[in-house]
Amino acid sequence: MIKLSHVSKRYPNGHEALKDVSFDLAAGEMAFLAGHSGAGKSTLFKLITRIEKPTSGQIIVDNQNLSRMRSSKVPALRREIGVIFQDHKLLFDRSVFDNVALPLIVIGLPHDEIQKRVRAALGKVGLSGKEKQYPVTLSGGEQQRVGIARAVINRPNILLADEPTGNLDEALSDEIIDIFADFNQVGVTVLIATHDLRQVERLNKRTIHLVQGQLVENAISSGKSEVE
């Protein structure tokens, strides 16, 4: 589903965020992307959602080569990928309903269909009945779940989550990671960037380590590790 071959990203200031990274995430797979802050996790997500372009290498998402993708096709790509951001990226002057509905409004779904799906998504993340509230009135964990509801509302094939448990307590973190696991159960490809090793151990999934922009892959379940 997501395939990177020899991807490097160097910023104009000379900082090399990713160095020759290659990995392949199969459809329906769930993996963690681990590494310290500054290891290149966010850069990787930006490349996959084509917010940025790699300096070299090839990225293929759902059989589409992002290097050759015209900018007019980018919106269609982003509709296939649900992204959860560390800073939530919510609109604070809009209600919870409007925030979650945005990906559906963008594709022009009829209003009653939007209403149905927003209710379902909010129910799924445990925020039923909070449609009319504004994000500021919600706690950090609730805001994070609004972001998740928005990411999944369009039933994407891929979910990317950047530090979704960043500043949540353990119980809340478990709850949120379990929501992702649930989506993975129904066939969604999930990639979670985190430095929360507790979650990595708890779920026992494939883990891709990034160390200073270079890839170190561990398959925790089998205990072996490969170094590239």
Partner: peptide
């Protein structure tokens, strides 16, 4: 600005 960025992120066309 913020709204435009987010709309583009969730797949809003130009």
């Amino acid at each position: 600005r913020h709204e435009i960025e987010i709309t583009k992120l969730v797949g809003g066309t130009d």
